[in-house]
Design a binder for these strands. Structure first.
Lengths: 194, 194
DNA sequence: CGCGCATATATCGCGCTGATATATATGGCC
DNA sequence: GGCCATATATATCAGCGCGATATATGCGCG
């Protein structure tokens, strides 16, 4: 395995410090403003990870108090910039997808067949709302084609895809698929996958 | 918060026991064969969770050894079937999405602008392969329209969408977006989101 | 002056993953 | 009969991640 030893949180920290020095608080704020939808991070991970990265020599912290409030600003060391470049060049991509609506749909036949359409429609509405929010964000941002903008565009396109897919699925359920006559879920478990 | 107190693992366990009694091992096998792509579970959660659910009275375990090997088969109690129904009727849906390729894309301008197209293309190929695998699974399964099959269909459609999106993005990067002239990532952080 | 909000750091419990360990059972092969 | 691979079955552990909470101070506003 190509183990560079970077945790998920470490990756987003190094990436953000790649453009400029930041405090832990600023990192969290930047994540919430930008990568949140596809790469989240919490204080509970950020602060311990900053300490670990500093100990490993990938970043360096400088005291930069604001009046009487203590504050540490971190920046990349040369080793850190190198590690960031290494990671960026590596091929294998982590990818996680977890969707509760899908799980409910999967169990619908055994639990409450009549509920399937409602579940699908609810999920469609949620996705449509998220797409709407992101479109509003896009409208007030300096539209361009750089990668930083592309990820916002993906959020919109993806949520529209999901909304459309579940809406069509809801219609299919409503238009009389004879659920009672179909095999129960265990028969539908995906076969193969040696 | 509508807290029914069910962990992610508890949901898939109750759902699977909804169709028939199973051992911990069988639950894990069923997950790997079916819900894995949108709702995973590991032994490290399944066995402790089975104990917790039994203690809470939602499931009941029966010793069912095979020869000299001990084995416990669990089934839903009435309370468990009720809890499953409750959960299934609840509206708020958990949804997580984490994509490392997207993170790399987001940092591409600051780290290695020339790599953006390659990252996008690699992700497109990965998604295309996954879609291919799922299509193979579909081909040998008893195609129908019940919810259990719908989730397999989603896997295919979703991965095709992703492959298409990243492929188009790769082309856009290649066809001369002047990356060096565009604002650096921090300027591209998504604004708004009070 | 007091209030609310932003800045800043820290901590805790719990859930979850992935790997590893330990057995026994089964079936095929020579 | 002996051997090996694979399947069945359960358990455990370190480390990462998440959400919530606690505790300050700084700053602007009325």
């Amino acid at each position: 395995m190509n183990d560079h030893g970077l945790s998920a949180t470490a990756k987003v920290i190094l990436g953000l410090l790649g453009s400029r020095p930041r405090s832990g608080y600023e990192i969290k704020a930047a994540v919430d403003r930008s990568t949140r939808y596809f790469w989240a991070a919490s204080y509970g991970q950020i602060y311990p990870e900053l300490r670990r990265l500093a100990e490993a020599g990938l970043i360096e912290g400088t005291d930069a108090p604001t009046g009487g409030r203590r504050r540490t600003v971190y920046e990349l060391t040369n080793a850190g910039r190198h590690a960031l470049g290494e990671w960026h060049r590596e091929p294998p991509e982590r990818f996680d997808y977890r969707d509760e609506a899908m799980l409910k749909l999967f169990f619908a036949t055994a639990v409450e067949p009549a509920g399937a359409a409602g579940i699908a429609r609810q999920r469609a509405e949620m996705a449509a709302e998220t797409a709407e929010e992101l479109r509003a964000v896009e409208a007030e941002s300096p539209g361009s084609d750089q990668p930083g903008y592309a990820v916002l565009r993906f959020g919109i396109d993806f949520n529209e895809f999901v909304a459309d897919w579940f809406e069509r699925q809801a219609l299919a359920f409503e238009e009389g698929v004879p659920l009672r006559k179909l095999p129960r879920p265990e028969a539908a478990e995906i076969e193969g996958e040696r």
